[in-house]
Amino acid sequence: MTASAVVFWVLTLIVLASAAVVVLSRSLINSAFALLATFSGVAGFYVLLGADFLAAVQFLVYVGGILILLVFGVMLTHRIQDLDLRAEARQLVPGLFVAAGVFILLAAVATRTPWAIGAGRLPSATTAEIGRAFLGKYLLPFEAASILLLVALIGAALIVRKREDA
């Protein structure tokens, strides 16, 4: 086994184990912290696939941002200790069906899509290439993203303000 294969299987173990903790843990805060390991493991997968920029984004946005938001959400919940949000055992059968359905769908997409296989080596760093694409061919989506973020910011502020007043 090559070194990258060893890393791949260790990452797989980390992601699956921590995802299991997220679902099965009794305490909501433990679930939130286990999600940290899951997100970090996925960032490792991006590195293995040669997507270094995506890996950095995964860390910045998911580990650094989304997770903060989740932990804050847990801390802001009233009487959090009295809640039992653990998934019930009776959801096992429907859960299996949904998981099998998602697996079949993903497997079909992965095997039937005619993936474009480029010739030559991968770029050593993808960030500059993404930057050139942003400022050239995909300039409009790039600028539209800023409008989208503006809408998200104002919307979030409005919703929270309304809740505070109530």
């Binding site: 920029f53 984004v57 910045l60 946005v61 903060i68 938001l69 910011l153 979030a156």
Partner: peptide, 16 residues
């Protein structure tokens, strides 16, 4: 946290 997240994503777009 929400404001931070929005500017976090902005930083991601500005990096390239």
């Amino acid at each position: 946290a929400l404001v931070f997240l929005v500017f976090d994503v902005e930083a991601v777009f500005l990096l390239p």
